[in-house]
C-alpha cells in the first residue's frame, strides 16, 4: 500500500490541468449565460398590487423591528399592536387566503418559466461537463492529495477506479471533477464579484423550500419575530454616550 505510484507527466498536461481550466471557464461561462437569460425586470408584466403591498408591509415591519430601540416604549407598543394585534393586525393572514395565494403561485406560468431557466442554466452545464469528464478521462489516477485519509473516503475520491490496493490519497479524474466543483466556489466569488450566480447550494435550498417568495409565510414569520422582540429604549443612554464622545474630542 505504501509504495508510490508513478504518474505520467502526460496525465498532468492532458488531464489535470485541462480539467481544472475547463471547470473554471465553464463556471465563468455559466455566470454570463445565466446573466443573459435572466429576464429583465422591466419586461415582466405589471406586478400584482396585492403582492407589492404585502412586500412593502414586510419591509415596514422589519424596519420597525431593527430600529425599535430608537423609539420610546409606548410608541413601540403602539406600532407593534398595529402590526401584530390578533385578527386586526396588518400582519394577520386569514387561513383560506394563505392557501389561495399558494395555489395562485403554482399556476403562474411566468414564475415557473423563470425557475425553469434558472434550473436549466445550472443543471445543463453540470451534466455536460460530467459527461465530458466521464467520456474522456474515466479511469485515470489524476492527482494525489497531500494528506492521508481513511479507507472510508475511497468511494468519494476514487470514483471510477475499482482497485482496492491503491492508496486512498490518490484521486481519480472523476473525483477531481467533484473536488473542483466544490472548491472553486471561492475562486468564483473572487473573480465574478459579489452577486455571482454560482452559489448553487443556497439556490438549490431556496428552490427546494418555499418555491420562491411566499407572502403568507413571510408575513407570518415577520409577525412572530416582531412578537418576541424585547424592547429596549436606547436614547437615554445615548446622551451619556454623546457626552463621552464630545469630551474625548475636546481633550484632543
Amino acid at each position: 500500500m505504501a509504495e508510490e505510484l508513478v504518474l505520467d507527466t502526460a496525465i498532468r498536461d492532458w488531464v489535470l490541468i485541462p480539467l481544472s481550466v475547463v471547470m473554471v471557464l465553464i463556471g465563468v461561462l455559466r455566470y454570463f449565460v445565466s446573466k443573459l437569460m435572466r429576464s429583465p425586470p422591466s419586461a415582466s408584466p405589471s406586478p400584482d398590487p396585492k403582492a407589492v403591498k404585502e412586500g412593502q408591509l414586510v419591509i415596514r415591519a422589519r424596519n420597525l423591528r431593527t430600529s425599535s430601540q430608537f423609539i420610546p416604549a409606548k410608541a413601540f407598543k403602539a406600532r407593534k399592536l398595529y402590526y401584530t394585534d390578533g385578527e386586526r393586525g396588518l400582519l394577520h393572514v386569514p387561513k383560506e387566503d394563505a392557501q389561495k395565494a399558494q395555489a395562485a403561485m403554482f399556476s403562474d406560468p411566468n414564475m415557473a418559466m423563470d425557475m425553469m431557466k434558472k434550473n436549466l442554466s445550472m443543471i445543463v452545464p453540470q451534466t455536460l461537463t460530467f459527461a465530458w469528464v466521464n467520456f474522456f478521462f474515466s479511469g485515470f489516477v489524476a492527482a494525489k492529495i497531500p494528506f492521508p485519509l481513511t479507507q472510508r473516503f475511497r468511494g468519494m475520491l476514487q470514483n471510477g477506479i475499482d482497485l482496492s490496493t491503491v492508496d486512498v490519497s490518490y484521486v481519480s479524474s472523476r473525483s477531481w471533477y467533484f473536488l473542483n466543483l466544490f472548491g472553486l466556489r471561492g475562486l468564483f466569488s473572487l473573480i465574478l464579484g459579489e452577486e455571482n450566480a454560482t452559489d448553487d447550494a443556497t439556490k438549490m435550498m431556496q428552490m427546494g423550500g418555499g418555491m420562491g417568495f411566499n407572502p403568507a409565510m413571510s408575513l407570518g414569520a415577520e409577525k412572530d419575530s416582531l412578537d418576541i422582540i424585547q424592547h429596549d429604549w436606547a436614547l437615554p443612554k445615548m446622551e451619556h454616550h454623546a457626552e463621552e464622545v464630545l469630551r474625548k474630542l475636546l481633550k484632543k
Binding site: L7, D8, T9, I11, R12, L16, I17, S20, A143, K144, I145, P146, V171, L179, N180, F182, G183, L184, R185, G186, L187
Partner: peptide
C-alpha cells in the same frame, strides 16, 4: 471553514503539479 475547501483544492493542485509528476 468556508475557505478550507478552496485551500485543499489549490494545495492539492499545486502539490501535484510540482511534486507528484
Amino acid at each position: 471553514f468556508g475557505g478550507l475547501m478552496s485551500f485543499v483544492l489549490f494545495w492539492t493542485f499545486a502539490y501535484d503539479i510540482v511534486h507528484i509528476f
